[in-house]
Design a protein around this nucleic acid. Structure first.
Length: 483
RNA sequence: GGUCCCAUCGUCUAGUGGCCUAGGACAUCACCCUCUCAAGGUGGAGGCACGGGUUCGAAUCCCGUUGGGACUGCCA
């Protein structure tokens, strides 16, 4: 057998669905694990109402971001329209297709209450010619079975009698996905059709069409092998919906998930690497992946687990790499790519790259996504900290010790000889001893006054980097609020 | 309704007849570490949907039940 040629065939929707990404990933694995394997992107845009060129870019960009490099494409199904028409006419002349002028209403009117769904074959033998309202239907065999040999599910048998005479070309003449997909797969010499389980029921129709084309054209092309991947579902166990669920890979990129983490996580949905370690490199994924090992049941897309994995990948970055990775979120004006749905609360003038480089290690292991960095370092760049009122009330206003600690810190910090973390730590600890508070409690009002929150990076190093002038200023401002 | 698919901790999974007292990961709980929060460490709780077979032996094979899902478009 020759090198595999696989494709993903998304319809342009304006964003890249994580389910499509998972399908793309598994296709890519198959292409990359065999020498000469080819990974193709084909945009299935036969439906003119959804055919918008600007919908293609998100697909290409997302694939590139995930590192799923294309060998061919993007092809556009619409570019092959002539071949689709030709195939439809050839099939019609060969008797595989027939014209039908039944309207949906007429069909419904004919159908008895309990009758099976689908077309009833009314026009099958009427010998209609092409007319203004005639669609082209496939003359499905009335008997026999069609066997789908699925690489993940094994053999699935369909009774031809339950497959209705489906429409292959609209009355407008436009050839539908059902046929176009088959014509294109033959044209592109696809060897493995790897797609979501929702297409399993389409497989026998496409096999029938494929065989018809082999016969009518006299050009025998071997059937591809099929593999239907388990669906990605939401917490309600239903197919991930773009209406109800956060499903675009762009949204994850915007939130600050690393492509490697997303790839790793997606690979874990419906499959797993050997051994107990789930965090594995792309190389290991490519090497170990087998379609036959893919699970048969739907998988829930668990953002919590993705987030944990992302945190692991983040912590693995060198300090410099981490600083660079944060750029689109902390200084988007200096990057070529930036998240489209968020900007930092500080201005370009307020931001200082050198300060951020010093501060970044403090938050490095405290974030699970890059976008979380912003809220952790905002007080370094904003003129005034954004005070969380509930926290301020709790440790400063409602606690009589709060103002005492603040006043004492202000007094001592102003007189301090060395302005550095260890010294600030020691001084604060000393204040605690005097007023009878643990360091844990003594640091709280200071933290809140200076950073605005009760949680954040280590306080004393933060104060060191913030500087005496700004620290003292904030302590004074907080104290003023207690009067 | 019809056709098809599926069924191991809450979630993702390992498991392909004895190695299973069912393993790992996320989440969760406790403790340790600790200036907050994380991270990290240690430990705990938690699962083979049910019923029949087959077999010396079943999470693993077969049948049924129940439950979930997909498809059922002149969308892809």
């Amino acid at each position: 057998m020759g090198a595999p040629r696989v494709r993903i065939a998304p319809s342009p929707t304006g964003f890249f669905h994580v389910g499509t990404a998972r399908t793309a990933l598994f296709n890519w694995f198959v292409a990359r694990q065999a020498p000469g394997g080819v990974f193709i992107l084909r945009i299935e845009d036969t439906d003119a109402t959804r055919n918008r060129e600007e919908w293609v870019a998100p697909i290409v960009d997302s694939l590139a971001w995930l590192g799923l490099d294309l060998d061919e494409g993007p092809y556009r199904q619409s570019d092959n329209a002539l071949a689709h028409d030709g195939a439809a006419q050839l099939l019609r002349r060969s008797g595989y297709l027939y014209y039908c002028d039944c309207t949906g209403e007429a069909l419904a009117a004919r159908k008895a209450p309990g009758a099976p769904p689908g077309y009833d074959g009314f026009c099958r033998d009427r010998g209609l010619d092409r007319g203004p309202t005639t669609a082209l239907r496939f003359r499905t065999p009335l008997t026999g079975t069609t066997l789908v040999s699925d690489e993940v599910r094994g053999e699935v048998v369909f009774d031809n009698a339950v497959i209705d005479d489906f429409v292959v070309a609209k009355s407008t003449g436009a050839v539908l996905y059902a046929l176009a997909n088959v014509v294109d797969d033959r044209h592109d010499k696809i060897t493995h059709v790897i797609r979501g389980e929702e297409h399993l029921a389409n497989a026998p129709k496409q096999m029938l069409l494929w065989a018809a084309l082999n016969d009518a054209t006299g050009d025998y092309v071997a059937l591809p092998s099929y593999a239907h991947l388990p669906l990605l579902v939401n917490e309600r166990r239903q197919k991930l919906s773009k209406r109800k669920d956060p499903v675009s890979t762009e949204s994850y990129r915007n939130e600050g998930y690393l492509a490697e983490a997303v790839v790793n996580y997606l690979a874990l949905l419906g499959w797993s690497p050997r051994g107990d370690e789930e965090k594995v490199t792309r190389e290991v994924l490519v090497e170990q992946f087998r379609l036959g090992d893919v699970s048969h049941s739907p998988a829930f897309f668990d953002v919590k687990k993705l987030t944990h994995l992302n945190g692991e990948y983040l912590r693995e970055l060198d300090p410099e790499e981490f600083v660079a990775a944060c750029a689109p979120w902390v200084c988007p004006w200096s990057t070529s790519w930036r998240p489209s749905d968020r900007t930092p609360p500080w201005s370009e003038e307020q931001f200082h790259a050198s300060l951020f480089a010093r501060v970044a290690p403090l938050v490095h292991e405290r974030v699970a996504t890059l976008s979380q960095v912003v809220a952790m370092v905002d007080f370094f760049f904003l003129d005034e900290p954004v005070i969380d009122e509930a926290s301020f009330h709790k440790v400063v206003l409602a606690d009589p010790q709060g103002p005492v600690v603040l006043a004492e810190a202000l007094r001592r910090f102003e007189l301090l000889g060395d302005w550095d973390g260890p010294t600030l730590h020691a001084v604060t600890s000393g204040i605690g001893d005097e007023v009878g508070l643990s360091l844990r409690r003594a640091q709280a009002p200071i933290r809140c006054a200076v950073t605005g929150r009760l949680v954040g990076p280590p306080l004393f190093e933060s104060l060191e980097y913030l500087g005496r002038r700004r620290t003292v200023q904030r302590l004074r401002a907080a104290l003023a609020r207690t009067l």
